[in-house]
Amino acid sequence: MAENFNIDYKKNNHELDITFTGQLTINTIKKVTESVKSQITDQSVVNITVKDVDNIDLTFIQLLHSIKHSGKKKGFAVNLSMTLPEDLESLIVNAGFGNLLKQNN
C-alpha cells in the first residue's frame, strides 16, 4: 500500500515540532505510532500540528491522547493545533473530541 500519510519532525533545542498530514487512520496508525515513539525522547516541549488531512479516525485521536499522557508522565508539554476539513471536523466534534480542535489545549 502506498504511503499516503506524512510526518515531519523538526527539532530545535528542547522543542520538537511534529506535523501530521494525509491518511491518519487505522491502516497507517502502526507506522505513525512507531515513528512518533522513536522521535519523542527527551524534549521538554512537543508541538503537534495536524493539517491537510484526508481522513482521520479514532486510532489517530487515541495517538494524540497517548502523546499527551506520555507528556504528563515524562514531564514534557504538548501543544496541539489541528485543522480539519469541515466534514471531519463535525465528525470529531460529534464524537466528543472537540477539545482537540481548540488551540493550545
Binding site: K30, I40, L58, S66, K73
Partner: peptide, 24 residues
C-alpha cells in the same frame, strides 16, 4: 452532546493503536 472519556488511553510506550481505549 458526546462525552468522550480518554483516560484509559495508555502512554506511547504501552499503546496498541489498533485497540479501542475510549468510552463514550
Amino acid at each position: 452532546v458526546s462525552i468522550a472519556y480518554t483516560h484509559k488511553v495508555p502512554s506511547l510506550d504501552l499503546i496498541d493503536n489498533t485497540s479501542n481505549y475510549c468510552i463514550w
